[in-house]
């Protein structure tokens, strides 16, 4: 164990005190730097935020005000009726539980499988691993529509129809996740692995004890991504689940979009509701990513 630390302490140790000094310096004399950075940030935020603001304000408008002209930003008669109709339109509390279950399990499996695969792709040098990397990329290259019908037949033949497993398992392998971990582990110096090997550490324990903890920011980032993907999945859960007690949130939201007309105020309300868990996950996980002080030189 000690040897694994050695190559990192060399450049990490002097970094630490300086870093403290710098952050102190920023708080006292940083105004000159804070002004342009903050201005830039908020110009961008305003550009991005305008549609977002309209989206959120509009969800409080009654249906009749939504498309009135001249355009208005602020609702004249704010109402929660869109939210209430949306919430009552389906058994949303059950749907939230189902979707959470699916998202949590899939995300754990995705992060685990991607971490293992990404590490193998980055740190082992075999021809067949390179080929497998191309194979993984290939999974993103067929349009979803063409895979839908054959994939349904496969999952049905596996006996997974109308079960959460049928929703979860096909979603575990993601190219993005494997790719993220591969690229991350490429930046981890090989010397770290070699040193551990010299120390007599076993291959898988190098991975589990040294590499997995290092990749925590990537894990959390992938967890946010995976949660969003699964939360917003619609067509696959709809085809796979037959029992309304197993339906997911997006199935409930899509039922607001009718054949001939869309009740926009209800749809906007439902969209806001369904977004809240994702924002919470994002905030919590991002805090760890931002707070993780990976000061050690990972790349020499």
């Amino acid at each position: 164990m000690t040897t694994t630390d050695t190559p990192r302490r060399i450049d990490a140790d002097p970094g630490r005190p300086v870093s403290k000094k710098r952050s102190r310096g920023a708080s006292s004399g940083g105004l000159r730097r804070a002004v342009p950075a903050t201005t830039l940030l908020w110009i961008l935020a305003c550009l991005y935020g305008l549609p977002v603001l309209w989206f959120i304000l509009s969800s409080f408008k009654p249906a009749g005000d939504l498309f009135s002209y001249p355009l208005t930003m602020v609702p004249h008669h704010p109402t929660l009726s869109g939210y209430l109709t949306a919430w009552r339109s389906a058994n949303f509390s059950q749907y939230f539980i189902n979707t959470t279950l699916v998202c949590v399990i899939t995300t754990i499996l995705t992060v685990g499988a991607s971490c293992c695969t990404g590490y193998a792709l980055a740190k082992y040098d075999n021809k067949w691993l390179k080929a497998f990397f191309i194979c993984i990329l290939a999974t993103t290259m067929l349009p979803g529509e063409v895979m839908l019908a054959p994939e349904f037949l496969v999952v049905r033949n596996l006996g997974l129809y109308n079960s959460f497993a049928g929703v979860i398992l096909p979603a575990v392998l993601t190219a993005t996740g494997c790719f993220m971990f591969r690229q991350f582990f490429l930046t981890v110096p090989d010397e770290l692995v070699e040193a551990a090997r010299i120390d007599g550490a076993r291959e898988l324990s190098i991975f589990l004890r040294i590499m997995v903890p290092l990749s925590r920011p990537i894990m959390l980032t992938l967890a946010i991504l995976s949660f969003q993907w699964r939360w917003n999945d619609y067509i696959w859960p709809l085809l796979m689940l037959n029992d309304p007690d197993k339906f997911t949130v997006q199935i409930g939201i899509q039922s607001i979009v009718g054949a001939q007309n869309i009740n926009w105020s209800v749809l906007l309300g439902a969209s806001v509701i369904s977004m809240i868990p994702l924002i919470v996950i994002f905030l919590v996980f991002q805090r760890y990513v931002m707070g993780a002080d990976i000061n050690a030189g990972l790349k020499d």
């Binding site: 164990m1 630390d5 140790d13 004890r209 290092l214 990976i294 050690a296």
Partner: peptide, 14 residues
């Protein structure tokens, strides 16, 4: 103790 990652890996040990 220099990095979160290494510190954790030691604390967890086997």
């Amino acid at each position: 103790m220099t990095t979160v990652g290494v510190r954790r890996s030691r604390r967890l040990g086997r």
